[in-house]
Computed example of a mutant assay.
Amino acid sequence: MTDAEGAARDPGLQPERTALSWRRTIMSIIVADIFIWRGWFHALTHERASPPGTMGGVFDAGHSSHVIALGVCAMAACLTTIILVACAVSRIRVLHSGVERLDQAADIAASALTLRTASAAIVALAVAAICAIALGM
């Protein structure tokens, strides 16, 4: 395969760029997860003043709706991160296995299921982050 100037194209660059892009995306998602989980743990430990020598409210029953909502946001963030990591790993594997056959675009194109799953997970993570911010992480 050649470009407009006639130089040979290096088929190894596309999978490498995609892998680096997915790694940056996953790192950004993990940072968002850490902030959401930090907000939830902070709300758990500071929900009510506890007597000295106790766990600080982490294992107490009867949490407020604020703490429960932040917990739901934290769990949603964790689940979406796991889903996105799985999509990234599968996509990187497909690209690296298809480097020799890069001219056959149908073989290495992302499946519709992968695209829909990743898109839904990103939207769900954004909603969880916005809800956590609104709840006052």
Rank of each mutant, 00 (worst) to 15 (best):
V85E: 08
I36G: 00
C131P: 00
L44W: 08
R91P: 00
S119A: 12
M1Q: 12
G98L: 02
L113K: 11
L79R: 06
W40F: 05
L70D: 10
G136K: 05
W40D: 00
W37Y: 04
S65A: 15
S28Q: 14
D33W: 00
F41D: 01
A88T: 11
G6Q: 07
L79F: 11
T80K: 01
D107K: 04
F35A: 01
I82K: 03
G57T: 13
T2V: 09
A76S: 12
S50H: 12
C87G: 09
L79Y: 13
A77P: 02
A132N: 04
V99P: 01
M75D: 14
V99S: 07
S90L: 06
A120T: 14
W22G: 00
L70Q: 14
V89N: 03
A19M: 02
V72C: 02
G56H: 09
D107L: 05
A134I: 05
V72K: 05
A43M: 06
G57A: 09
G12H: 13
L79H: 15
Q14W: 08
S50N: 14
P15R: 03
C131A: 12
A109W: 01
S64R: 11
G6F: 02
A88G: 10
L125H: 13
C73G: 15
S65L: 13
G39L: 01
I68Y: 07
C131W: 06
A129E: 05
G6C: 06
T54I: 08
V67R: 04
A105T: 14
I36A: 00
L115M: 09
L70I: 14
A43F: 08
L125W: 02
A69F: 06
Q14V: 09
C87N: 07
S111H: 07
L79M: 13
S111P: 05
H66T: 15
V123S: 11
E47V: 10
A61K: 13
S21W: 03
T25K: 01
T81N: 10
H46G: 15
A120I: 08
